[in-house]
Structure formats: structure tokens, C-alpha cells
């Protein structure tokens, strides 16, 4: 079905069209939700909540820009709100300005599989994980992240630097372990 027609049908509340839209974007969006959460169940919760918001606010989509990008933005916001709302994330979701960490130049080459890398990102503390995803993966600037999370821009920078530093060290260790243990793609 044509995208415009699909949107019109969705706006009319037709369940078939809503299902089609879900099938079209649920895969990539589940990936987004997965990166921000700690479990697949939480990721599915965010996905569901995000799609409800999408159906509810579809009339606000102006048609400018890609529909996928608009949906992704809603999904990211939903994920952030989900983290803030849930107590087991809230405890970890603390953003403190802990001084700026310089980004070292000796970045390793990321030779891991995508799923391994995603798994390592998800092992970061929630605050680090969120800011790392927003900056490194989604490409938001620190000013934008500051506004989204209600924190200072400098705090975002310092948290990101810490997250990056931690992740790089984990990647190095992971790669070293993989060399010795005939590294194969793990199951998640």
C-alpha cells in the first residue's frame, strides 16, 4: 500500500492499516527500544507504548521528512520517558556532572558483531546507556540531549565521555577474550 494511503487509513482508525504500519516499522523500532532498555520484555513494552503514541499523534506528521525518522523520534522519546518512569531504571538514571573526561585518540577498531556491541551498550549504567545511544547512535548533539533529559549540556558531555571510555575498555577486553576463546557470535 502507498505510504500516504496507509497513513490516511490509519488516521481513520482502520485496524488493518494500523497493523500494516506496525509490521513495516516494528522491526527497526524494536531495535531502538532494545538499545535503551535492559530486557526484551521492557523493549516490547516501549514498542507498544510508542506505537500507541504514533497512532494517536499521526495527524501531527506533516509529511515533511521521512515517516521512519518521525516514528523513530517518537520511539526514542517514549523510551526515555519509560526509563524515567520505571523505578528500577530511575535508580540508575542519575546524571551528575562529574568533570569532563578527555576522549582518547586510541579508539579501537570495533570488530565485534553488532549484537555483541549492542549487548555491551546495554550493560552500561542506564544513564550512560541513554546518553551514549542518543549521541553516538541517534546523533543528537549534547545541547539537544540536555533539553531532552532536562540536564545541563556539560553533564551530557561528561556522562558521554565516561560511557565511551567504559565501553571502549569493555570492547578491548571482549576482543582479547574472544581471541583466546575462539570467538564466535553469541546468542542473545
Amino acid at each position: 500500500m502507498d505510504e500516504g494511503l496507509l497513513l490516511r487509513e490509519c488516521l481513520l482508525g482502520k485496524r488493518e492499516a494500523q497493523k500494516q504500519l506496525f509490521e513495516l516499522f516494528s522491526g527497526p523500532m524494536l531495535g531502538v527500544c532494545y538499545r535503551y532498555t535492559k530486557s526484551m520484555a521492557d523493549a516490547e513494552d516501549v514498542l507498544q507504548e510508542g506505537f500507541i503514541k504514533i497512532y494517536r499523534n499521526l495527524h501531527q506528521y506533516s509529511g515533511q521528512g521521512e515517516l521512519g525518522a518521525w516514528i523513530r523520534r517518537i520511539m526514542v522519546n517514549t523510551a526515555i520517558n519509560y526509563l524515567k518512569r520505571n523505578s528500577h531504571y530511575q535508580a540508575e538514571l542519575s546524571f551528575r556532572d562529574a568533570g569532563l573526561h578527555l576522549v582518547s585518540g586510541d579508539d579501537p577498531e570495533v570488530t565485534l558483531y553488532s549484537k555483541d556491541l549492542a549487548m555491551l551498550i546495554r550493560q552500561l549504567p542506564t544513564g550512560y546507556q541513554t546518553i551514549f545511544n542518543l549521541h553516538a547512535v541517534e546523533g543528537f548533539s549534547h545541547v539537544e540531549i540536555g533539553k531532552m533529559l532536562g540536564i545541563h549540556e556539560g553533564t551530557s558531555r561528561s556522562q558521554y565521555a565516561r560511557a565511551r571510555h567504559l565501553l571502549i575498555s569493555w570492547i578491548k577486553n571482549f576482543a582479547a577474550d574472544a581471541k583466546t576463546e575462539s570467538y564466535t557470535r553469541p546468542r542473545l
Binding site: 516494528s26 527497526p28 524494536l30 553488532s114 556491541l117
Partner: peptide, 11 residues
């Protein structure tokens, strides 16, 4: 970023 874009999920 490129690694994350490689990730494929099926709901």
C-alpha cells in the same frame, strides 16, 4: 552507528 544499523529485529 553502522554496527547498530546492521541489527535486525523482528517483533
Amino acid at each position: 552507528r553502522s554496527k547498530m544499523e546492521e541489527l535486525r529485529f523482528v517483533a
